[in-house]
């Protein structure tokens, strides 16, 4: 009886999700196995050519490059985010929610705006160049905007609040007496951190890392805006196949590989989370 009511309540939303999420995603999966039509349409004959093309060195290189940039951004964001979460968790308990709120706040402002802010800072007449000139530096400054570095900075900046939130959760639940027990048993501060605190909060760190990686590798806005036109990541490749090159089957094939890579990482993260949720948390 309860389950019939439940079905009645869930049906409209589940129907919507099926129509506008499940079916379109399945469509992408099938598109990847069709041939590109002569004038950009789709020819409905089965082929594995699109998937073969993805591992062609030209495109495989873009995948590797994207993974490198996403990995770098995830690593830097994780280190900074963990340190920030650790610092917040060390504050007096009643101040923590407010500080956390302000650490997350930028995450809720527009992504484009946050990315644009870095264009303003990094461009040739931007604040950083202005600051260097103001300090009396007259020499040639390296270009900062439209570089790989700019893309990494942009990704770290955009996703940092997420890592802070993910790391704060286990750190705030950590019973302070556990750390005290460790030092009582003779461990130094660093040993306590390495042997006790880090293992117990590793889940949050892993979650943060994986999400930044997954969100970055498929990103096309940040590379397009901060990397300049010539800089390509997987997201831009997909974008191009659908909106300019008009090769939907190939675009679908790239997306499929992209989804596979993301799924792999998300599964890994679930695995870590399930292993790591041990006792000792409040």
């Amino acid at each position: 009886m309860q389950d019939r009511k439940s079905l009645f309540l869930m049906t409209p939303a589940l129907a919507w999700l099926t129509a506008f999420m499940v079916v379109p995603c399945l469509l992408i999966l099938t598109l990847a196995f069709f041939r590109r039509g002569v004038y950009g349409g789709i020819e409905y004959t089965f082929t594995l050519e699109n998937l073969r093309l993805v591992i062609d060195p030209l495109y495989a290189w873009i995948f590797l490059k994207s993974a490198w940039i996403a990995g770098l951004a995830a690593l830097i964001a994780s280190v900074i985010g963990y340190a920030a979460a650790f610092a917040i968790a060390a504050l007096p308990r009643r101040n923590q929610p407010l500080v956390l709120f302000f650490a997350i706040l930028p995450f809720w402002s527009n992504y484009l705006v946050r990315t644009y802010a870095w264009i303003v800072l990094l461009n040739r007449e931007g604040l950083i160049v202005g600051l260097a000139r103001g300090l009396g530096y007259e020499g040639e400054l390296p270009a900062m905007l439209y570089t790989e570095t700019a893309v990494v900075i942009g990704l770290v900046y955009n996703y940092l609040p997420f890592v802070i939130l993910a790391c704060y959760a286990p750190l705030s639940r950590l019973n302070p007496e556990i750390a005290e027990a460790s030092s009582d048993l003779g461990a130094s501060g660093w040993t306590t951190f390495r042997r006790v605190i880090l293992p117990m909060s590793f889940t949050g760190l892993a979650t943060g890392f994986v999400f930044v990686f997954v969100l970055s590798i498929g990103n096309f806005v940040t590379p397009a805006l901060l990397g300049g036109g010539q800089f390509q990541m997987v997201g831009n490749l997909v974008y191009a196949q659908f909106l300019t090159a008009n090769d939907w089957p190939f675009g679908a094939a790239i997306s499929m590989v992209l989804i596979a890579v993301m799924m792999l990482f998300l599964t890994l993260q679930t695995f870590v989370a399930e292993r790591g949720s041990g006792g000792g948390l409040r």
Binding site: L17, M21, P24, C25, I28, V214, F220, F242, G251, S255
Partner: peptide, 21 residues
Amino acid sequence: TLIFAPMVIPDIVLAIALLSF
């Protein structure tokens, strides 16, 4: 999974899927 998916599927994937659809 169905409920959680819209929050984790990358925007670009959902975007091209919907465009194709």
